[in-house]
Write a protein that binds this DNA or RNA. Structure first.
Lengths: 302, 302
DNA sequence: ACTCCTTATGCTCATAATGAGCACTTTATA
DNA sequence: TATAAAGTGCTCATTATGAGCATAAGGAGT
């Protein structure tokens, strides 16, 4: 073996909760007061990365996370501090962690709405103006008549009737490259109300990876339930899905789907709602873990 | 910062090619002559992990890989050599790399059929006997009347009419845990014709992750084309998909699908087939990169 | 020239899934 | 007793999916 690069390994966690239909992630404050994703070390004693991760999350925040999934490993050189070239290389293994409630925050930690980071991703009330009035024009300017750029813009941002919710990372990276977000700190950067709240380091990239992954997963695995308490109403379920997916859903059809796939079962109980007809409380049928494989390109064998 | 664990980082590559309908991965020979996935270091100079990866792949094998995608980062402690407890921890960032042809192998490298590693994954000629006659019974014995084990077996191995092609890793891990594969080297291990060819370290896990990922990706992104040369017949396309997906496809429906999504376009040319009617040669329409978002759980917005 | 083999294509059909509406019920609170 | 909020039932057009039958087009062999 020749030159082994010296490496420092960190475990980053995008900790997600959905509270009152707002999808939120936990942040701590880093240099220049920018929010950052919490991060911790790999402990020598821990047999697996995930165990270390759970460990420091609980130490630092008191939260015992439920569902955890590895997201991506970031190791680009820009991550290392700009200083001496002999600095060890910084490698981050990023995880997605889901919890069922918004926990009390410690002094240094706070929750931030995912759509404050990515305002253009929230289509629950239709196509956001931010997109049509600001971002797309700005991107068009950036692309000019560079064919490749234009194609990338189209692919990532689609047109109004072709919006792929999963391409969150692609979109953020494009905005980054176009110098439209604060992280690039060019004078082209749009105001935060449009380009979203900047984060420290490349953490907004990590957050966008997480959102994209969640949206993807949603379509073929019942991850929503990791965000809900034991029992919930169907409407809450729907709103939670909408919060992640970023699009409105047709109520009747949603219920039809949920029924058909038999994802949940009713407890007899009902909510005592503040107003309106009380809703029935449901619980997740964990038997469904062997649920329908993804529907997709002509692979039969259901 | 407290105790930073010392870490050695490696980049592993599952290099995939499909030749004459056989999906193959490149292996090198490791200790005890077991096949291993090629692996290389992270070079300090390279700005991204991917660049390092491409670099050593070309150095070691002469192959210039096309499509590359990060798979997973493995860091479980068993990976480290069992020796001194102060050994640095071994971390592997595994990548999936697709190439269009089976390249000439160097002295130490050779290609191995994916289904020699996972014989139970090949359903192209119906449910394999290996599964019904050997694996499922063996798993049933292992599970006994342990409810949790049984549920896991069902989830991973389904029943004959519920087989989720994507759960390759889950299945391998279960077999591993049940001591049925050679890597665990218990006397329970089934013969290689049933349990598949063992690999060094945890490399069969990595390979299974890759297969699962490919099968998943296949259903919503046109990755097949990374495995094909510029022009190809529709039947070749179909056979390639089948090779990865591990299931047979209905020819006419497959063609209908390909047409509808307008993934390919015909060149006027035809093959001079050895027998039978010549097929038209097609090429991939790269314009389709903004192709249909995944179809799935009630997220509209096509 | 004809037959057979092999692969490519065209078309039909039943069933299921999807996206969108309209209308109406149920229950609690003001 | 209205009103708000939430739940339900049902229809309908469109598209997707899984499966089949039938036919066309070359090439090889007789």
């Amino acid at each position: 073996m020749k030159n082994k690069t010296r490496v420092v390994l960190n475990l980053d966690a995008v900790i997600v909760a959905v509270t009152r239909h707002h999808p939120r992630i936990l942040t701590v404050s880093a240099k220049q007061n920018l929010p950052a994703i919490p991060s911790g070390p790999l402990h020598r004693e821990d047999a697996t990365l995930e165990r270390s991760l759970r460990g420091w999350i609980e130490e630092q925040t008191g939260i015992e996370v439920g569902y955890v999934e590895q997201l991506y490993t970031f190791g680009d050189i820009q991550r290392g501090l700009p200083g001496a070239p002999n600095n060890p290389r910084s490698i981050s293994v990023a995880y997605l962690a889901l919890i069922t409630e918004e926990h009390p925050t410690t002094s240094s930690a706070s929750w931030i709405n995912w759509y404050e980071l990515f305002p253009w991703e929230d289509h629950r009330n239709g196509i956001p103006d931010i997109l049509t009035k600001h971002l797309r024009p700005a991107l068009a300017t950036w692309a000019g008549n560079n064919a490749e750029r234009n194609e990338r813009v189209i692919t990532a941002f689609g047109s109004d009737n072709r919006w792929d919710g999963m391409r969150v990372l692609e979109r953020y990276e494009l905005l980054y490259e176009a110098g439209l977000v604060k992280e690039t700190s060019t004078r082209d950067a749009l105001p935060e109300s449009i380009s979203g709240v900047p984060m420290a380091f490349d953490h907004r990239r990590i957050a966008s990876t997480a959102l994209g992954r969640m949206r993807g997963k949603l379509t073929y695995r019942p991850v929503v339930f990791e965000l809900l308490s034991d029992t919930f109403t169907l409407l809450t379920l729907q709103r939670t899905v909408e919060a992640i997916a970023g699009v409105p859903l047709h109520k009747q059809n949603f219920r039809r789907l949920v029924e058909r796939t038999r994802l949940v079962e009713g407890t007899g109980q009902r909510t005592n709602s503040p107003a309106g007809r009380p809703a029935e409380l449901f619980r997740f049928r964990s038997e469904v873990l062997l649920e329908r494989p993804r529907t997709g390109i002509g692979v039969p064998y259901r």
